[in-house]
Write a protein that binds this DNA or RNA. Structure first.
Length: 215
DNA sequence: CGGGGGATTACCT
DNA sequence: GGTAATCCCCCGA
């Protein structure tokens, strides 16, 4: 099938996750998230992320300390943190920061690169390719990411990350404010591959809404 | 133990 | 732009 994306990435190493969370939020732009699922290989290239910090970030789940839900955030960098949002959607994060510190990078949008037919079946909703993995709840559904993946090691699979051989330059990444927050809403912690048609439609500062057309 | 509020989305007007 | 869907977390009592 279309496995061209593999040429642009290499296997991730644990050391790749050692960067500070904000740097990791930028470095993950261009990385490929792969789920080796029962429905086949489902993969997408990351085009939008948000950083959630342990200090001075009231919007972070870790802000009030470790709980049963957020304990994966306090694990070693390179762990998956998956949680249920609004009672129905799952959000996928890459845990970052030192072991014991609650930080993570939320993945908000992917460019689909493999398993598109299976992704459409999982979405159970007809939509343009650019919307297939646009939005944190949509991409977890398209890739079949479940709460059972919470705490899994992203260097091992079945949920796996592939590292970009060439990272996006500073000019290629647009920085804005995070989406959907009431607290710490002004921090510039959202990173988007500039002008990507696969980014989520909701716009923070620095990314005007792009929701003029339906379907 | 009760209740407010989400790191969302789709569909309505 | 407004809001229902849907449920679990977590704070305060």
């Amino acid at each position: 099938v279309d496995a061209d994306w593999q040429k642009s990435v290499r296997a991730v190493k644990r050391a790749d996750f050692a960067a500070p969370t904000i740097d990791l939020g930028r470095a993950l732009i261009g990385a490929v998230l792969v789920h080796e699922s029962d429905a086949g290989v489902l993969a997408g290239r990351i085009v939008e992320t948000e950083a959630y910090l342990a200090e001075g970030d009231a919007a972070s789940h870790s802000h009030r300390g470790r709980t049963e839900r957020n304990k994966a955030m306090f694990g070693p960098a390179g762990t998956a943190y998956v949680y249920l949002s609004y009672g129905m959607h799952r959000c996928f994060n890459v845990v970052s920061g030192p072991d014991g510190v609650g930080e993570a990078v939320l993945v908000r949008a992917l460019e689909p690169v493999e398993g598109l037919a299976a992704m459409r079946a999982l979405r159970a909703s007809e939509c343009a390719e650019r919307k297939l993995c646009a939005g944190p709840g949509n991409l977890t559904r398209a890739l079949g990411i479940a709460l059972a993946h919470d705490g899994c090691d992203l260097s091992r699979g079945p949920l796996r990350l592939w590292w970009p051989r060439r990272h996006a330059s500073a000019e290629e990444i647009e920085v804005g404010t995070r989406i959907g927050l009431t607290k710490a809403a002004d921090l510039p912690l959202r990173f988007v591959l500039r002008a990507s048609p696969f980014a989520s439609a909701s716009g923070g500062r620095g990314s005007p809404p792009r929701r003029s057309t339906r379907s």
